[in-house]
Design a protein around this nucleic acid. Structure first.
Ligand SMILES: [Mn+2]
Ligand SMILES: [Mn+2]
Ligand SMILES: [Zn+2]
Ligand SMILES: [Zn+2]
Lengths: 146, 146
DNA sequence: AAGTTTATGAAAATGATTATCATTTTAAGA
DNA sequence: TCTTAAAATGATAATCATTTTCATAAACTT
């Protein structure tokens, strides 16, 4: 939390950018919340603390957070980008229930390894990947009637 | 090709929809082209054959093609949906060069298997997945200067 | 052929994100 | 502290792919 703030401050300094009350507020709120949240959701929370902050500033800040390694953009494929904590977290992929939209964070070291191998086999050096698994969770399978 | 057309015709009939010259033309052109093409690209090709066709019809048709299992929506994450042949093709994922945008179609049975296992481990029954591997291809690694 | 349903094309609407721009802040210097 | 150049902000307009709307034109049914 404090560590993440320090990292962001360093990033800001290294790019000759400036720390402002707006950025500080947005960063605070972002770090406090966990999960995957959209720019709109974050904007709503920011507005509650300071209604004068514009949404463009939130969008701009999310870009900076991503660049600095504090946040990561997540695209579930529904037309809205979400952001999650990246700093201090392990890499993971997502398992999504298409019925109740539950999102489970998952990792499979074996899959990660095989992805590298697969890319290499085609002459590529992997720089990243996006993997989303879609399915029906146990709860949804039980509540078939409703 | 003819088989695919028949499948689409059946789909149209089963839904009490109608086959029209526009749909037929769009289907023909789509089936003739391979690769991953956008609605805009398909629209351009259709226009060349019949300038009177509207782009809304192309978008509508792509929806139908996807529903009927003839086409599959592919989202490389650049803000534009692409469509590829699905009927008569094997499942595959994509390996994309972030420098030259080369797209390689890949499959790794082992990964597919592990995805199932991973989902099951979390109580999910997998219905699908999206996996995109991003990296730098061999050619791009050689042409570093240009 | 008449009636009913579905399809079409043009144009407007949508919705998330980005760009613009006039104004305000910030960080350094003098 | 005053000055100034660079960067940030917020309101608003612009983008851009996709979807809707709606009046008109097919397509099927009887
Ligand atoms: Mn996550
Ligand atoms: Mn493909
Ligand atoms: Zn569920
Ligand atoms: Zn390349």
């Amino acid at each position: 939390m404090e560590k993440a703030k320090a990292v962001f401050n360093e990033f800001i300094a290294s790019k000759n950018l400036r720390m402002t009350p707006q950025r500080s507020l947005i960063l605070d709120i972002f770090l406090r919340k966990k999960g995957h949240l959209t720019a709109e959701q974050l904007y709503d929370m920011v507005k509650r603390k300071d209604p004068s902050v514009g949404q463009a500033t939130v969008y701009r800040m999310l870009k900076l957070l991503s660049e600095s390694g504090i946040a990561r953009e997540v695209d579930f494929g529904d037309g809205v980008l979400r952001y999650e904590h990246l700093y201090g977290r392990e890499h993971h992929d997502h398992l999504i229930c298409t019925r109740c939209n539950k999102e489970v964070e998952v990792v499979d070291e074996e899959i990660e390894r095989l992805q590298e191998r697969l890319a290499k086999r085609h002459g590529f050096v992997l720089t990243g990947h996006r993997m989303y698994l879609y399915g029906i969770c146990k709860e949804c399978r039980n509540n078939v009637g409703e």
